[in-house]
Nucleic acid binder design. Structure first.
Lengths: 138, 138
DNA sequence: GTCAACAGTTCCAAATGTAAACTGTTTTGC
DNA sequence: GCAAAACAGTTTACATTTGGAACTGTTGAC
């Protein structure tokens, strides 16, 4: 995504980075399923290809949304962690989930999660962000 | 976008429809700039191609996000209007804009708009939704 | 020492997106 | 009443992105 920015509109700038089919699904898996490893992302229901996954993880790393580091306890394993900018995408996931829950035929169990998050307002979001900071700190 | 759904996750269902570079920019133009005509969307800074625009408008219409009708006062003109599902995308635009405003180098004047909307909580959103309902009703 | 786990990479085909020119009406300005 | 501009797209040729499958090279488990 080395494309020159097409405008300085905040919505456009967000979309230039996360406006695609896969990026927010990766973030979703980190936020709601606690995934941290390449192989885990590969196993999601939507079936991202390893090629696309590798490219997205690299871009997200370049743009400061997540960090990549070696697992000290396991030489082969790589750990991906959300940065503060990545954790800050939680409200986007919440509103996106709430919309899908209301206007598409979504799984009820999953819908409850984002619905509660969106309905809980700032307080619910901050609580979950705090938990994510703990989980993704080194 | 006649793709079979890959999962029933509400976030995935939202992304399958609006997770791309252009769709939310069209909605943004309708919501914040009051655009309603093909030629107006074409003139945005980001420069969508007429082919992509036509395809997206068709999909959004098929999926019930907007409606298409002839302008009674002007035989050539077509009017696109947001449905309730389309208006309901406002919180997504607000959080997306707030994120871009905080984490990218966004235009300050534009950033203020989404920032206030996101900071104003449910009340600010509902107020703007009410205005959109009036503007996009027949 | 063998086998599975791990994070990718490589290659090719298919799908999608872009730019630019073009269509066929209708309305506007004179 | 006629020419030019406005309107919503379509078409075509090309470039870029994506998807699927097979493959690499290393490390850890048994």
């Amino acid at each position: 995504m080395a494309t020159r920015e097409k405008s300085d509109c905040p919505i456009n700038l967000s979309l230039e980075l996360i406006g695609d089919r896969w990026t927010l699904l990766i973030i979703r898996d980190m936020v709601f399923a606690g995934k941290k490893h390449f192989r885990e992302f590969l196993q999601s229901d939507e079936g991202i290809s390893s090629r696309t996954l590798a490219e997205r993880l690299q871009t997200l790393q370049d743009e400061g949304i997540l960090t990549r580091s070696d697992d000290p306890t396991h030489g082969l394993r790589t750990v991906y962690r959300l940065t503060e900018a990545g954790i800050d995408l939680l409200p986007v996931l919440a509103t996106l989930g709430a919309w899908g829950s209301r206007h598409r035929k979504a799984d009820e169990r999953l819908a409850r999660i984002t619905d509660q998050l969106a309905a809980g307002g700032e307080a619910a979001l901050e609580k979950m962000k705090a938990a994510l900071r703990t989980e993704h700190s080194v």
